[in-house]
Structures are given as C-alpha cells and as structure tokens.
Write a protein that binds this DNA or RNA. Sequence first.
DNA 1: GGTTGCATGTAAGATGTTACATGATTTA
DNA 2: TAAATCATGTAACATCTTACATGCAACC
Lengths: 175, 175
Amino acid sequence: MSLRIALLGMLAAKGPASGYELAKLFDRSINLAWQAKHSQIYPELGKMVESGAVTVEEAGGGRGRKVYTVTQAGRDEIKQWLTDGDLHRSVRNEIALRAFLVPILPPAEAAAVMRAEAERQAAQVAELTELKARDKPGTPTEPSFGTYALDLGIRSAELIRQWATETADDLERRS
Amino acid sequence: MSLRIALLGMLAAKGPASGYELAKLFDRSINLAWQAKHSQIYPELGKMVESGAVTVEEAGGGRGRKVYTVTQAGRDEIKQWLTDGDLHRSVRNEIALRAFLVPILPPAEAAAVMRAEAERQAAQVAELTELKARDKPGTPTEPSFGTYALDLGIRSAELIRQWATETADDLERRS
DNA sequence: GGTTGCATGTAAGATGTTACATGATTTA
DNA sequence: TAAATCATGTAACATCTTACATGCAACC
C-alpha cells in the first residue's frame, strides 16, 4: 500500500514521470521515508494503470519510455491515506534494535559502538543540512515537496547523535 | 538477518525461552525496534537450531513447549552484528512518508493532519514515560535490557510531536 | 462444559531484494 | 568504438502478514 501511495504522491507533486525517474526520486529526495528498487516500481505502476489511479503514455528516449500521470481517482486515494488516522505504524529500525541489544556487550565495547553511531549520525546531520541549504537558497515562498520531511530527517539524526553520545557516556561511567 | 539477531539477543539477555515467550516479548518490550509474529518466529528458531546458534530442549506445559538457549556461536553472531558498522539503514517509515506527501493537500487540511499526528505522538510519549517509570522504580543499578531503547523511543516521539506542531503552525500561517 | 491462556505449527499471499537480461542514445 | 546513462522488464529468493489448524491446562 505504502509503495503505491509513495508513487502516487510523487506523481502528484512532481507531475508526470517515468518509472525510471520515480526510481531515481526514491534514491534522492524521498529516501528518508521510503525506498524502492525499479524491479518493484515497474510492476506496481502496471497495477496502478489497471486500477485507474494513473494513466500511461508511450514516449521516446532510451529504449521506449513510458510516462505516467495521476488521475483524480489517484489523488483521492492519496488524500484518503493522508487523512486516515490509522496507519500501520509498524517499525523496523535497525538502529533501535542495536539500542536494545547493546547492553549485552561489556560496557566498554558497548560504549565504543555508541560512539561510532554518534559519528555516523553527525555525518548524516551535516549531509542533510547541506542538502537543505542547497535546495532552497533563500526562497521564502511556499514549502517545496520534501521540505518538512527533510526537517524531520535532520532533527531525527541530531537526536540520535545526542542519544548515542549520552548512552556512551553512561556506559563509560559504569565500566 | 535482523529477526535472527533480535531473537538471539533476547535469548542472550533474558535467558532461555520458548518461541511463545519470545513472541510476547516482541509485543511488549522490543516493539519500538522490531516486530514479528509467531508464524515467523517458529520457523526462524528451527533454522537457528540447524545452524548451531541455539539449542532446544523439550519441556512440559501447554501442548509441549520447547525451550531455546543461545550457544557461544550465537553470542558471537550478536557481537559481530553489533560491532558491524555497516547496517542496512534502510528506512520505511509511514510517518515520514506522510511528512513528505502532506504538502500536496491544501494548507488547512494539511495542518489538521499534522495536529492529529502531534496528538498521537503526545499520547505515545505519555505511554512510554509511564512504562519507564513502572519499569525501574528507583533502581540506580545497572541499565536493564531495553532501557536505552526506551529512552530513544520517548525522545523520538517527543521530537515528532514537536515537529508536527511546528509544521502545523507553519501551514496555518500560509493558509 | 465453555472460555481464556499456553503452546506450536503450516499455507497462502503480499512485499521487498538481488540478480539476470535487453536495448537505445549520448558522450568521451 | 567503448563506456556511461537512459530505460524497461523478469526471475528467484528472502521476508513479513494473515489466516487456518491443533491441542493441553486452568479456571469459572
């Protein structure tokens, strides 16, 4: 379901696009929220055409590209999903899993794991902050697709960095 | 891989347990990090026995329960995974996806979606905070399995609540 | 005797990943 | 002309969810 919504959403926000372009969008902007490979995207677009959420048009370029456009039915689906209070909320987070299991290690080793995590998060914060600066160079107009999500991404990375540092401190105090 | 590690980790931290007990542990403590149904757990435990990461013992109770114990090989696997810098880091987060797509809606509607999200997160913060208070009633001893993860969970929920509120404010200013 | 909780499993289907396969167009 | 990029697809496999299926023990 979510993949379908993600694709529909990108088409609604960015306008008509090919499967190839959508695959690249996943790699770039939306990757903080969702991911998909082209091998999953192409069949999904097929299903969406069948159900009437998008339309296709053949176009030139490459080996014969196909451009997809959202229909009104597709837009309704997005809106429905956005307003539905009851998401899955199933979480599968390897960092949190590590957080869970790390006290199994002797404190000194556990602390080292947390320090390494803090560094990776610091790098992530730097990367996303740069991306944000590059993306909107002083345009106080309307929020572009992805701006709010990017903010959330930066804050989350910063929070994890902070947490990992404090956890490492705590573990070292105990060792 | 992660399911295997999660199971191994729970067995290492909590001691020998049955598949049924592990399934309940997923529902309770570890659910912020990972989830699994019994239908996935039982076969996985079978594979782990085959590969020598755990051992089984038949025991009484219910219809014939089986108790699993981590071996040294299993412990080594956990340690390996914890120290490995290169996790998948693939994220699939429906809240972040919403964050991405919400600017598609007219500002007033988008703001309402964000307010609702903020409320859900506030409830989550309350719930987890209570859980934390209940879990360690003034014991300044060693950090129990899950304490660090619980902290991370509380902070994350609080961050999302804050972000959703600010995003709603911003959207309302624009509408 | 019925419900709830303990306890284990299988099967079908959806979702996601990795690998294989093909071919046109642009650029060095 | 070789490599990179654009472009689409299939197949095999791993992972996860939902539904089906069974049976014992305790309590009411």
